[in-house]
Nucleic acid binder design. Structure first.
Lengths: 342, 342
DNA sequence: TTGAAAGCGGTACCAT
DNA sequence: ATGGTACCGCTTTCAA
């Protein structure tokens, strides 16, 4: 039993394929009687126009590709959900791929675009290989790409991101107010743009208070929870351990608190810990995590919206270097930070 | 600047389009010289065959759709990652949609299949509407669908799931061994098939030990962390509170422990808590969560593999009711369970 | 308002 | 081994 085609519907309704097509896409360009006739048949057989054929003809897929560093990481799923929020109402579908598997296949991350499978791309990975970036920079591709959360350093793509620097300044200010002077910092992956920004933000705020953050007080090589756990022990050894630990992600912070607890160190009694992201779990850790709230869903939502704008051509093409959209962040004070022990 | 077409490549290489097509898909059916000639041009212009056109012709999209209850829930992202594990090596792409937004659009959850956008469907939502289920039951669709994790009650679709009942029996046995006799249970959504299975498993194991689980000792209406937090208070009020709480998800368990902590109740000193899933976080909560490990990635991986098998026709069609693949679960003992206080 | 027919960009059959 | 060409299913002029 083959699937119904437009021809079958046309025959059954006693009209031409052109009329069926119009009845479906331009209902007002068909007489009421014919339309009813056609729709009846369509309904009866639950006919759905073949998407490939349609795309081929109209040169548009109504599909957008999201490129995620690692689909297994729950951090990104919330952004994806936000993307869906914007895409779904526009009748656009989402194709998801992660850069890990793509690289394994030795496939250009953008081949989907080139193969006309997707109209546009939302990239959550700031570390795309240079040749992919080059492909995306061509005039034909420029308005079909938006970066969300992360972004490639030194390239001018439209992007949506959180105010990472301001976030760390908020975090530092909060700790400073509570009398802390001895800081440590748990960083993410070295080359990562978020690591760079947040670290810079922290250093800046600390410097303003006349506090130096020596390399020996910086640890961490990923945003993962296990890394935070391991780093906790290293950070606290030595003669004069920090009283406050700035973590560049909540996962890092939660792992860190777990490690601290294992050593019998009390949070926030002995040391204060602050995170970044405000993932769902932060409110339920013990103690509940003080953190910098990042609107992940909004990130996705706005990125998708910008992409949609770009695709529909009503993008403001005047600016050669599109300004990034920067979303505000906020401090969420919970139980993992307190006044420094003197 | 339009994208290159096969005609352009053919002209540039001085051959016919047929030859270009062959050089790309059946390299051995073309002479070495011509192939080199063609490939040079292809490479030079980074030509990529239009996917829509190809799909239209070969009647295959090499794309699979995953239907997720809620993309924002990190629980599913790991399954999705597993799906990718199987799909990527096969050169199949993944299209993701969540049933929430689909319903909002009043669209049949399976319209993607009907529109020939995807060759097959992996459904993580056991609660599909009846009409969608009916659509999927047609002979044309039967071998294109696999359920993973959840499954629709009373329908015989191929499915991959964890051994939920055995999981709860493991949990109960563990607690029994530690001398617990007073149990409470935190359930997920009422209609959910996982709630049903796990609850049944718990009741069974409890009954074997001569222990009854009264309705008053059952709480919870979702798998979410916030629900566990709220339920904790309710569960512990009353004259003779439980000494052990069985949670049908880790999120529930973590929320519950958080709530318990807020009330000054010690885990596992006063009450033991056990979860289900073994999400990444479980190892880092305080105390670390004893839980039932479910191989989420494996779930996705095997489901995708079964789908691929079904699509390629080498499915064992003899069985009218395909046997579900049931993955084993294991108990992971950590710090949230201990001997019952007498 | 409706129908006939020309493609959209590939693939694969049939000749050569 | 290669080229010519019908066709995949739908949309969209162009005429009627």
């Amino acid at each position: 039993m083959k699937a119904m085609g437009i021809k079958d519907i046309a025959r059954l309704a006693g009209v031409s394929t052109a009329t069926v097509s119009r009845a479906l896409s331009n209902p007002d360009r068909v007489s009421d009687a014919t339309r009813a006739q056609v729709m009846a048949v369509v309904q009866a057989h639950d006919y759905r126009a073949n998407s490939q054929a349609r795309s081929l003809r109209v040169q548009r897929t109504d599909t957008v590709l999201a490129l995620v560093p690692n689909l297994g990481n729950p951090f990104f799923s919330e952004i994806i959900a936000g993307i869906q929020d914007s895409l779904a109402p526009a009748g656009v579908d989402l194709l998801v791929a992660d850069t890990l598997t793509q690289q394994a296949r030795r496939q250009s991350a953008v081949s989907h675009l080139q193969a006309a499978r997707a109209d546009g791309l939302i990239c959550l990975d700031g570390a795309l290989p240079a040749d992919s970036l080059a492909d995306l920079s061509t005039p034909a591709m420029r308005h079909r790409v938006v970066f969300a959360c992360e972004w490639p350093i030194g390239r001018d793509f439209p992007s949506v991101r959180s105010d990472n620097r301001a976030g760390m300044q908020l975090a530092v200010a909060h700790l400073l107010e509570h009398g802390h002077r001895d800081f440590a910092l748990l960083a993410g992956p070295p080359g990562n743009v978020l690591t760079r920004e947040r670290l810079a933000g922290a250093r800046e705020a600390l410097a303003q208070a006349g506090i130096d953050l020596p390399e020996s007080r910086i640890d961490g090589h990923s945003f993962e929870i296990a890394d935070g756990f391991a780093a906790a022990a290293r950070l606290m050894q030595g003669p004069k351990p920090p009283t406050a630990i700035l973590c560049l992600s909540d996962q890092l912070a939660i792992g860190c608190m777990s490690g601290l607890g294992r050593m019998g160190i009390s949070v926030p009694g002995d040391v204060s810990v602050i995170g970044f992201d405000d993932i769902a779990l932060a409110a339920y850790s013990s103690p509940p995590l003080t953190t910098i709230r990042q609107d992940r869903r909004g990130l996705g939502r706005i990125a998708a919206q910008r992409l949609l704008d770009g695709l529909s051509g009503r993008t403001t093409d005047e600016a050669p270097a599109p300004r990034p959209t920067v979303l505000p962040i906020t401090l969420v004070q919970r139980g993992s930070t307190a006044r420094a022990k003197r």
